[in-house]
Design a protein around this nucleic acid. Structure first.
Lengths: 339, 339
DNA sequence: ATTAGCAGTCGGCTGTATGGAGTGCTAGCG
DNA sequence: CGCTAGCACTCCATACAGCCGACTGCTAAT
């Protein structure tokens, strides 16, 4: 039904439409590509593609535009990820190589990705549910307020202030610190939460309320790291591509800032460890992103535990280039964090 | 030259233009406000205002629009900061009251401010140059890598990994930690940097390279906190007001993401401790923000040291409301951090 | 000083004509 | 049977003309 050449036609329609932003007609196809057949033949092929709902004509007599289904076929079978240019690889090395800590490397990564793809870039903080506790530090701020610092082996540092109902002396605090570290270091964060509950009972009754407050604060910290965060960069790029949206980009930006829907989407997308997942157009409608495409890839932090990164942009985007960029950055980031 | 009534006319022109987005004519003024004079009289006043370059007519025969100079006069002499509504005050209390740490309170603040003003909100991290060292923690990650955590009394926590040329044993690390804390706790961050240099000499020669690496990492951390950061929220609001810009909002969003120019602008704006500073339109041209206005106010973190927060939006914005919101949020934030 | 009236200007909207791009269809060719 | 050339048709985009309405500036009268 759909001949080999028809698919080739679909490919060039996607490519030309992405680069020119104009519906592409049969004539311009034979001009720009050497199919060795005439425009009329291409038209027949296009009729087949339209029959299959892979392309559509915005108006009775205008060129054709890929449908969501067309893009889907393109990324699944037609797109060849062109490797990044030497300059681009170099930029990744240089730019990410200078990072000093986890926050820094993620901030740099998200900016870099926005620059490489010219889209909105998103990086999820490493999920630490499977990371392990490296160290717990308690710092008295005032007699009844203690800053709890939790350091995970992924390099992530969480902080929180605990309010104590009863003041704790310095020696007791030291004892608590030692006990906490002894019990929790090396545990997965999830397991640490349970262990924390048992610790309270090991202290004299009078101190328990305060120690319970401390343990509770740390448990909350661990929970809050599950409460995942997202870094964003390149919002300006969305504005640049505003013409590609039928309505306003306002709800899109809102959804991005809101984060929660986006995190859900990320969660559903990435399943395989490697490889870039693509979610196109209406597939994202439940998330208020019906006119956007999202590319995502998992990356592995050192404490294992997989997090995601990717880009978001109009359905009409350069999938080949962007998929390659996402893949490369994800790989490099995994390597960087693994060290 | 400019009569009392002329100024009143300017005021209503600003107000009406802001709320209607349409150039305002003499007729609509006498309809909507009770000046007790006719449209022709208003026209005479408007001629004076135009003479003074406080308003301008986009086309030969259309209503008038305030100029940058007109807005300036308005905010300096005509605007009355209407106090926030009871509901708004309540929202601030509720929303910020739940915060658990400095990062959290700033994130909430910037979102709140964006919501109250319907503009892009900006919050600068508390400058800690005058904050004091509360605690330094060293956590070995591997024999030659140590995570340095620096806790300031403003509640800010900085982290960085130091690479050691030679491994340090646990006891030595403990000794270094004690020495560092003994020397630096209580010092202003700026002073701590100098003190760090002297410490290296107190250890045996063989260990000095590694200890120098540690001290260097901490010194760098302190420096990097000067390297100021900005939180942003409400980018979607900028898109909503896109019509108010003659060109694209692309360069505006870019400037915001870039941060550096914006930080300069913030730095130049806020001088007095209290009160909201306003920078209007072309006054911001050197920063690539010639069509935007920026409202800013200082706020005081606990460790003293003043940082800024504010909003950015099109010149045509509701100055009265937004100045009130910025002032209220700055005050509340100062109080919150002061506790 | 204020007002009423009037002429003049210009933006924005509507309706019409035109050019051009692209399609679908059909008949003919290898 | 696939491919091609040609043709009639559709519809968008643009330009242009004309009209309406809003507003101003000016002048003369109060």
């Amino acid at each position: 039904m759909v001949s080999e050449r028809s698919l080739e036609v679909l490919r060039v329609i996607v490519q030309d439409y992405v680069s020119s932003r104009e519906p592409v007609g049969s004539k311009s196809i034979v001009e720009r590509h050497s199919f060795g057949v005439s425009a009329a033949t291409i038209r027949n092929d296009m009729a087949v593609l339209e029959e299959e709902e892979l392309i559509v004509a915005p108006h009775t007599s205008s060129g054709r535009v890929p449908t969501d289904k067309g893009y889907r076929l393109f990324v699944d079978h037609l797109a060849d990820l062109k490797p990044l240019s030497r300059a681009q690889r170099h930029a990744i090395e240089i730019f990410l190589g200078e990072s000093v800590d986890v926050d820094d490397v993620l901030t740099r990564t998200v900016r870099l990705l926005a620059q490489l793809t010219h889209q909105v870039a998103l990086v999820q903080y490493p999920s630490v549910s499977r990371a392990r506790v490296r160290h717990i530090e308690l710092v008295p701020l005032s007699p009844q307020r203690v800053l709890c610092v939790l350091i995970a082996d992924s390099g992530v540092v969480e902080q929180r202030v605990a309010e104590l109902p009863v003041a704790l002396g310095e020696t007791l605090l030291n004892s608590v610190r030692a006990r906490l570290n002894g019990a929790c270091v090396g545990l997965r964060l999830g397991d640490a939460v349970e262990r924390l509950r048992g610790i309270v009972d090991q202290f004299p009754e009078s101190d328990r309320p305060s120690i319970a407050a401390l343990a509770g604060a740390i448990a909350e910290q661990i929970e809050s790291t599950r409460h995942e965060r997202l870094l964003m960069a390149g919002a300006a790029n969305l504005v640049r591509t505003e013409h590609d949206f039928t309505g306003s980009i306002y709800p899109v930006l809102e959804a991005i800032e809101e984060q929660v829907e986006l995190l859900k989407l990320f969660g559903e997308m990435v399943n395989e460890q490697h490889g870039v997942s693509v979610s196109i157009g209406r597939e994202n409608a439940p998330f208020g992103l019906g006119e956007t495409s999202v590319l995502a890839s998992g990356y592995a932090g050192s404490g294992s535990g997989v997090a995601r990164l990717g880009v978001l942009g109009p359905t009409r985007m350069d999938y080949s280039n962007n998929m390659a960029a996402v893949r490369a950055v994800a790989r490099y980031l995994s390597r960087q964090l693994g060290e």
